[in-house]
């Protein structure tokens, strides 16, 4: 067991703080008068308590009250936070929760209908059939070919 966990040390510490019952206090003081270990420990604790009065007394460099007051007044003059905004006046908080999902759903529905209508109208608008690019394989000049058939080197030699 470490010194600081000793029940006697805890009791002596409480004795120095005057946070011990009167009867226990008398018993402990009587014990400390006869026990060299407890007597020395009690003297050390009392001396330590006196040492705290010697701690450096540091202070803030300026009047913090003035600084805080200026900041609070600046916050106040910037406008009270409680003033209702335009959005709040137009849409009370009770309606605001329902309004946004309803607007979102209506927008999504309108966009869906418009896109669907465009798909249905597209065949009527296009007059020509789409030409398949793959059919170009059967053209006289293959896709990517540079010369017409008459001047093509390969065609001439084959004749």
């Amino acid at each position: 067991m470490r010194d600081e966990d000793c029940p006697r040390m805890i009791a002596l510490s409480a004795l120095v703080d005057d946070e011990i019952a009167a009867e226990a206090r008398l018993t402990l003081l009587a014990h400390a008068r006869h026990c060299p270990l407890c007597g020395a420990a009690l003297a050390e604790l009392r001396a330590l308590r006196a040492e705290f009065a010697t701690l450096p007394q540091e202070s803030p460099d300026f009047d913090l009250g003035h600084v805080i007051e200026a900041r609070l007044r600046a916050q106040t003059s910037a406008g009270p936070a409680s003033r209702p905004r335009l959005r709040d006046r137009l849409f009370p908080s009770g309606l605001r929760g329902l309004l946004m999902p309803a607007v979102g759903a209506a927008t999504a529905l309108a966009l869906g209908l418009q896109l669907g209508t465009l798909l249905l109208e597209q065949p009527a608008r296009s007059a020509r059939e789409p030409r398949l690019v793959a059919m170009a394989v059967f053209d006289p000049i293959a896709p990517g070919g540079l010369c017409p058939p008459a001047t093509c080197f390969g065609m001439e030699t084959s004749r």
Binding site: L12, L45, R46, A47
Partner: peptide, 23 residues
């Protein structure tokens, strides 16, 4: 916790001064 803190502080002070700290 106060008892432990005081014991630890006394140990530190003894360590610093190399002497027993008594009033």
């Amino acid at each position: 916790r106060l008892a432990r803190a005081r014991a630890a502080l006394l140990a530190l002070l003894r360590h610093t001064t190399g002497e027993r700290h008594e009033g």
